[in-house]
Write a protein that binds this DNA or RNA. Structure first.
Length: 310
DNA sequence: GGTAGACCTGGACGC
DNA sequence: GCGTCCAGGTCTACC
């Protein structure tokens, strides 16, 4: 008989909206079921991998989460699972009201939280798999990393033991192979302190500089990882951002000119600018495809970017 | 400091 | 079914 957990949520939290708020909810090992409205995924816990299914049976803001596990969890594992779910769904985000004060456009819908991974390392690797590829390749890389290395997503120790050639041949990560192994070794050896990355006392500038020094992490990836760490003061500008500037905001001119206009456009949102940007993009996707919680992963696998949603 | 070209994969397209 | 082109961010070499 598997364990069952109940997790209390903040009064403004809504599972359907907040779980389906960033593309990573569609990446392995996460499995979103649009019919059952559940998120299922394996987690790495003390006694091994356990698969959990999360739902909010009372579909209203602030209702508790019901979590069903495929095996019995120890007391320590129950606490671990709660911590990881809290991270994924940002149940401990205390900046929601401040964000809505700065950008009231999202107060009514309540948007503020962006889905992320149970660990910062998974967020870093997922970001690397999203660089210089189209969305279907990102989907494939994450699926294969889970199939080949660890079903609950590779830990630093597991990934550090892999040969780059194995990752390239079996996980289709291409030239990212060596960079991923190097990132895993850096994290395993403590050169990159994952707890330090999550320490609110450390400045954004210090975190940003540390991320840029990592292999495979450039300006876009660093800003994206900072968002995943809960630091929203930088824009992660990629081709999708430029497209958003052109098609939604109506900007014209060279890419450099559009970048400048985007920075000016989001500057008033200060420490929250990534969220203000992202919910504009997400709103655009949902107007084209319907609410994200209705998206079937296979259906959006080839139609996730604005280029394909036109 | 700015820029060109290489790095890979997978989808689209033409034949 | 095959070949070609293209999209996508980071890194290195070069000016």
């Amino acid at each position: 008989m598997g364990s069952r957990l109940t997790i209390q949520t903040p009064g403004d939290f809504r599972f359907l909206r907040d779980a389906c708020s960033y593309g990573y909810f569609l990446l392995a090992p996460n499995v979103w079921d649009p019919d059952r409205r559940t998120l299922t995924r394996p987690l790495n816990l003390d006694e091994g991998v356990a698969t959990l299914t999360i739902a909010q049976p009372q579909n209203r803001r602030g209702a508790p989460l019901a979590v069903v596990c495929d095996r019995a969890l120890t007391r320590a594992e129950r606490a671990q699972a709660k911590r990881q779910i809290t991270r994924m769904l940002r149940l401990d985000d205390e900046s929601v009201a401040d964000f809505h004060r700065v950008d009231p456009r999202w107060r009514k819908s309540g948007r503020a939280r962006l889905f992320r991974s149970p660990t910062p390392f998974e967020d870093i690797i997922k970001t690397v798999t999203s660089c210089n590829v189209t969305w279907p390749s990102t989907v494939n890389m994450n699926r294969r990393l889970c199939e080949v290395v660890c079903p609950a997503f590779p830990t630093p120790a597991q990934l550090a033991r892999k040969r780059p050639a194995t990752l390239r041949a079996r996980c289709s990560v291409g030239y990212r192979d060596q960079r991923m192994v190097d990132l895993a070794r850096i994290a395993r050896q403590g050169e990159l302190d994952l707890e330090w990355l999550e320490d609110a006392a450390v400045s954004d500038d210090d975190i940003h500089a540390a991320l840029l020094a990592l292999p495979g992490i450039g300006p876009y990836a660093a800003a994206n990882i900072m968002m995943l760490l809960g630091r929203y003061g930088r824009l992660a500008i990629d081709t999708e951002t430029i497209r958003h500037g052109k098609s939604v905001l109506g900007y014209k001119g060279s890419e450099a000119a559009i970048r400048g206009k985007l920075e000016s456009h989001y500057a008033p949102f200060g420490a929250h600018k990534f969220r203000s940007y992202w919910f504009e993009v997400w709103d655009f996707y949902e107007r084209k495809q319907g609410p994200a919680h209705t998206w079937a992963p296979r259906a959006v696998a080839n139609a996730f970017t604005a280029a394909n949603l036109k």
